[in-house]
Write a protein that binds this DNA or RNA. Sequence first.
DNA 1: GCCAACGTTGGC
DNA 2: GCCAACGTTGGC
Length: 152
Amino acid sequence: MRYWLMKSEPDEASIDDLADAPHRTLPWTGVRNYQARNFMRDSMQVGDGVLFYHSSCPEPGIAGLAKVSSTAYPDPTQFDPKSPYFDPKSTQETPRWLLVDVVFAKKTPLIPLAALREHDELAGMRVLAKGNRLSITPVTAHEWNFITKRLM
DNA sequence: GCCAACGTTGGC
DNA sequence: GCCAACGTTGGC
């Protein structure tokens, strides 16, 4: 059982979109970074906790909780020439890009990025590091407990 | 819109 | 294998 922070642009998929999706589940499509892919492929397990983070929006921050609900499997958008996530170098036999399914757990009052920065307990979070661009980052049990029990 | 930081590409 | 150039991310 591990914990993760996963970024999503709310214009693409917000916590409300996740809550409204069939089975309250969305495939986490569009990851095109090897490090983030490797987290999904090598470390994610069904039931892992997810901090659902809204990025590139007026109020960036944690907007809710979710769970990993599948192991990694090929992201179908890499094979679709009409998709913005199309990757001409990927083949069905050796897909480059994977995704996991994520299921809604709950919506929470938004915890803005600036609020996360106020706590020494969270200073090690990768999402707070200067220049961080990774869309999937590991979260420690301590950070998870602090956020879910103290900030929600 | 700006720009710092980062990842990827491709020439050599 | 190096590294400059380029494209993208994402907060502000």
